[in-house]
Design a protein around this nucleic acid. Sequence first.
DNA 1: CTGAAAGCGCTAACAC
DNA 2: GTGTTAGCGCTTTCAG
Lengths: 325, 325
Amino acid sequence: MITMKDIAAEANVSRTTVSFVLSGRCEKDQKISPQVVKKVRETAEKLGYIPNDLVQGFVKGKSSVLGIISTFPDYLMPLVRGYSDEAARHGYSLRLIPLEKGDINKALMSALRARVEGVALVGVTERIREKADWDFFLPKLPVSGLMDPVKGRTFRFNQEKSAALVVDHFVEMGYKKIFCIYDKGEYVLKRKDGYCKSMKEHLLQEYLFMDSPEENCFEKVICGKPEAVFCGSDYLAARLLQEMSKHFLRCPDDFAVAGFGNLVLSRFTSPPLTTVEEPYYENAVAGCRNLIHFIRTGESLPREEIIGKLIIRGSTGKNCEPEKE
Amino acid sequence: MITMKDIAAEANVSRTTVSFVLSGRCEKDQKISPQVVKKVRETAEKLGYIPNDLVQGFVKGKSSVLGIISTFPDYLMPLVRGYSDEAARHGYSLRLIPLEKGDINKALMSALRARVEGVALVGVTERIREKADWDFFLPKLPVSGLMDPVKGRTFRFNQEKSAALVVDHFVEMGYKKIFCIYDKGEYVLKRKDGYCKSMKEHLLQEYLFMDSPEENCFEKVICGKPEAVFCGSDYLAARLLQEMSKHFLRCPDDFAVAGFGNLVLSRFTSPPLTTVEEPYYENAVAGCRNLIHFIRTGESLPREEIIGKLIIRGSTGKNCEPEKE
DNA sequence: CTGAAAGCGCTAACAC
DNA sequence: GTGTTAGCGCTTTCAG
């Protein structure tokens, strides 16, 4: 383990000088002779010196590390990447803080112990967020998240309005008898609400079907002879397509189907699914930028509302051509 | 920021005593009176003391942090989770080290600077791994990965043998005219090799079709009237199903299809895909355990070869019943 | 049983 | 321009 001390000894200068040279402050403050600078640099190189970011952070009182609290489900990788990329751009790196058994307080405490400068809550449900002792943590730790950790504040991503995009699209295509399949997922329920609101606005009758472990509702949907079906998630949509296939029905010839999420699988069903993209990566980049801005200035950037992007594929139109990858 | 010093002052004891109590060594070494222990603990609690893991790590010379170097593609989340879970079990946490522009040396250097105790290379191609200056890094930093960082050593996951499982399954089902679709992905090519070997062993004729941006091979496959098609990835399999659907062909009635990977989408195609599961999570757990074992003892655990698990679904049999979720 | 003292690697005032 | 000095928060001998 080569330290600055070793370099100082080898180059016959003081530790301070080495510190000055290696931290790059010598250029700005012009206080060290070029020869010395060169010698120190060469010695550092020769000895294979590797700076200790840990200590540097500790001494300066900033770790340059952000925490990310999550259970890390598969679909959130884009979020992790978004945070990581944006963090890197600002000289931060990311530490994973697993949310174990929903114990958010434990996760937050370990963030504090690790002296991360801020944390992002990612995919943490409201039920769990509520359990956190925010009075204790918020004053000590900047927290960012897709949703606001404090109950009752606006979501960044508006599920309702995004779901309405699909209904609008169906109406535009001339469909009137539009069904909705949902389950009891936190977000899915919001999308269902969006469907209901939008149907009301279009003065159309609602047809709601809930999928549950006890009861497979797809059969019923098919018997109901819809013109189009809005599914609260791409999973539900794909399962509907499977059921249709078993009944030798074809989409969109027999009826149109749309999902929600733009999951990878939505491009690989037959036909590919019309869906709504929740821009995870971009949200994460924005969230991370906000977090860092808050850390640096103590102020939050204004909270923008984000609405998904409708992605039209074969499942709602006559054109079944699959997209190029 | 409450420090041990503050606690010591408040409780009228020395810093050492506080350190002893809070690090839990007082129980073992029985050197501190219960009253003092109690007082220190209460004072720490009262003051809201939060230990500084950074400093502790630095002083002890071990950070208790592992690095994970990757570009973090979506499908590797299970790997990240596996590493994270296993690391947590051993008192480690994980730092993400993004692999930017394939610059593996930069990534390794930042691992060194962050004083992680070891790193895992995850989903890093051989082409990139070769560029690393292993002579410099390996002596300084324990490295683990799904594949060995040093070229030429065995892979943990045997793609060939795993691919052969599918061919065996096809043969068992009585299929003889078995096609293979592949592309030029590093792993996919290995799976193709597995197909070829296995076909030779079964004394069957090989039919190879390569998918490329220039040329869509699915059409050709369909015209070839296969009995079964092994696809080098679930993506390829799903695209084949899409093409079949456009031609009003049904799987498995017209011919059987199998993929590779057990990606989420493989459960959601119509019919669901027979595929091979690469146990990412379990591999990661094993990899992480090996890494930690190496860090602690300097010895590698014997390298186990892992073969995938064949998952039989509707796309290769007459039973198109989709699985329950 | 408890406390004083040294040191981990680095930064940053402040003299020389 | 360069070196001295004093910390940062914590662990760890080693006396008392």
